[in-house]
Simulated assay, not measured.
Amino acid sequence: MPTMPTLSDDIVIPKPKLITRETDPLHIIKTRQKTHGRPVTIAGPMVRYSKLPFRQLCREYDVDIVYSPMILAREYVRNEHARISDFSTNSEDTPLIVQVGVNNVADLLKFVEMVAPYCDGVGINCGCPIKEQIREGIGCALIYNPGLLCDMVRAVKGKYGDKLRIETKIRIHEELNETVNLCRELCEAGVDWITIHGRTRRTRSSQPANLDAIKYIIENIRDKNVPVIANGDCFKLSDLERITTYTGASGVMAVRGLLSNPALFAGYETCPWGCIEKFWYWVLEFGGLPFQLTLHHLYCMLESMDLRKPLLKEMMNLKNYISLIDWFDKTFYFKRFGEDEFGKAVEIPYKN
């Protein structure tokens, strides 16, 4: 894995990564319907959870574009420890969008300079509803500060042009015409595509996403010819067609649905056992994933598979990787990479 550079005077920052047609996110978004007979599929950013092993797992199950977790620009450009812990990648991790939480042009340009050699695009987080982030002018605060947001988009596009893609992931305003105006301004600023989460900053995730709002916004910016991705309530493959057909979006971004079932875009109604084996492989292959994070990924997937409750509780009481691997071997027929039928099983292969 590449080591993230610093901005000290004695280090030369590598040039932006060369984007090809095969890895260009914008090209993929615009052509997926023609090349694959379906809209584009995207794994959205999840705080802590969109790390390299999980991104690689999603790619194995018909996910076209994958996002990193949100990275705070201010911390990343100033703190070497943040760079080490927040972002790791490799040559196979593409197309990759690195999402950033940022509230000023200077930090954004420094951040982009540091990650551009290792990704295919940068996404500005304009949707995080956490109060602490909003107080800092990050996340949802940006949809109420369109001038700053558009300045940031213009700054990146002015420096990198089509060598790096720039996206904004927004929530909707209480007054939808405000969102329409924001999207039109973003298009004029040069944004490559817009992702719209169909909830306001105050809407709970337990409430349905507002697909009517996404449809209305798309209809009112269609003349700008900028793709829109719909986000919210995608939990199975049929939702991809349902959401895009109704809203006119170019594709769908899934987040919570993929956390429970990384294979949802491949047509699996619940997480298949093969996902568990492959996830284990990528965790051990890449290393560096905190134990509690691995445990939570496994919990989300196994819970969606209706693993017996006593076993879920037993697993969550384990304290380290050695005991967790031993538990899997004791409880299931657990195949490793290279063994026959590795990663192919659907049902849970209980030993007892």
Score class of each variant (00 low, 15 high):
K278R: 15
N103D: 12
D162L: 13
I28H: 05
S323T: 09
D151H: 13
I217A: 02
N181H: 15
G338K: 07
S88L: 01
D120Q: 04
C300W: 08
H36D: 09
Q207T: 07
I229N: 00
R55N: 03
Y350Q: 11
I170P: 03
I97L: 07
I196W: 05
V122I: 10
S205E: 08
P117Y: 03
R55I: 05
I19N: 01
K278L: 13
Q207D: 13
H297N: 02
K351S: 14
G101K: 02
G121L: 05
Y268Q: 11
N320L: 07
T23D: 04
V77T: 11
Y76W: 05
S85H: 10
P146Y: 10
C150E: 10
I84K: 15
L324M: 09
S250P: 03
W193Y: 15
V153K: 05
I134M: 15
T200G: 07
N320T: 11
K335T: 01
T244S: 08
H36K: 14
D93M: 06
E113F: 07
H173L: 13
C187H: 10
A230V: 01
V153D: 02
A209P: 02
K15G: 10
N181M: 12
I196P: 01
V66H: 03
C187D: 04
K163M: 15
R83Q: 11
H36N: 12
A43K: 00
F111A: 04
P290V: 06
L96P: 04
I11V: 15
K215S: 07
G127V: 02
V112R: 00
V346D: 04
Y76F: 15
M253V: 05
V47P: 01
F342I: 06
Q133F: 13
T247Y: 02
H197W: 14
A266N: 03
V100C: 12
L142T: 00
H296C: 15
L164Q: 08
T168E: 10
D340L: 14
R83Y: 05
V115L: 10
L18R: 14
K319E: 12
G147Q: 14
L258K: 03
G251L: 08
C140S: 15
D223R: 03
T247C: 00
M305F: 01
C126R: 00
S260K: 15
Y350G: 12
V180Q: 06
H296Q: 13
H36V: 03
S250G: 12
L264D: 08
W327Q: 05
W273P: 00
D86K: 11
I124C: 02
H27L: 04
R222S: 06
L108I: 08
V98M: 08
I229P: 00
W282G: 05
A43M: 10
S68H: 04
L295V: 04
L108T: 00
L264S: 08
F235V: 01
Q133Y: 11
T41C: 11
K319D: 09
V47D: 06
A345I: 01
V112S: 02
L57V: 07
R38W: 08
C271V: 14
K309D: 12
I276W: 00
F291C: 09
Y61M: 08
C128R: 01
L295W: 06
I130M: 12
P262C: 09
D9G: 14
F334K: 04
E341W: 09
I229V: 05
C126Y: 06
R308E: 10
L18S: 12
R21A: 13
L307Q: 02
T270W: 03
G101R: 02
L186C: 14
N231S: 05
K278C: 01
L311Q: 09
K157V: 02
D62T: 11
A155D: 07
R32H: 10
